[in-house]
């Protein structure tokens, strides 16, 4: 234990991950040429999470840290997910809808033919 302080891994591992990051980034970039839709969003988010995962796990060495640290770092952002979820819900289901219904603002008539219909989900693009 005493002599082995810090993180030592074979260089090849870093080159592998480095290469993978390039590949994933390229994939991420090419989603921009796709049609909008669920498939594209799935790919965007997947590539994003894969990239983020590699950076955090390998480059930032979190994979080799002890669970005590890993959990201390990964759990708190859960609060952000709550904030994000609620803000997204309120924004489209309430604020945006009230603007459309009462102020007569609807920039995307094709996207949402019946603005008062709560099932009408605003999606970008």
């Amino acid at each position: 234990m005493s002599s082995e302080v810090g993180q030592q891994h074979p260089l090849s591992l870093y080159f592998w991950i480095w290469g993978l990051l390039f590949v994933v980034s390229a994939g991420s970039y090419f989603t921009d040429f796709m049609e909008a839709g669920y498939l594209r969003w799935t790919l965007i988010l997947t590539f994003m999470l894969v990239k983020a995962g590699y950076i955090v796990a390998i480059f930032m060495h979190l994979k080799w840290e002890r669970w005590a640290l890993i959990y201390a770092l990964l759990l708190p952002p859960g609060a952000l997910l709550v904030l994000m979820g609620l803000m997204a819900w309120e924004s489209w289901d309430y604020t945006w809808l009230s603007r459309v219904v009462y102020f007569g603002e609807d920039p995307y008539p094709l996207r949402c033919p019946d603005a008062a219909n709560p099932n009408c989900v605003p999606m970008a693009h």
Partner: peptide, 15 residues
Amino acid sequence: FVVWAHHMYVAGMHP
């Protein structure tokens, strides 16, 4: 971290 909007019950947020 999950109780913040009890300050906003009548603030006009999502009911």
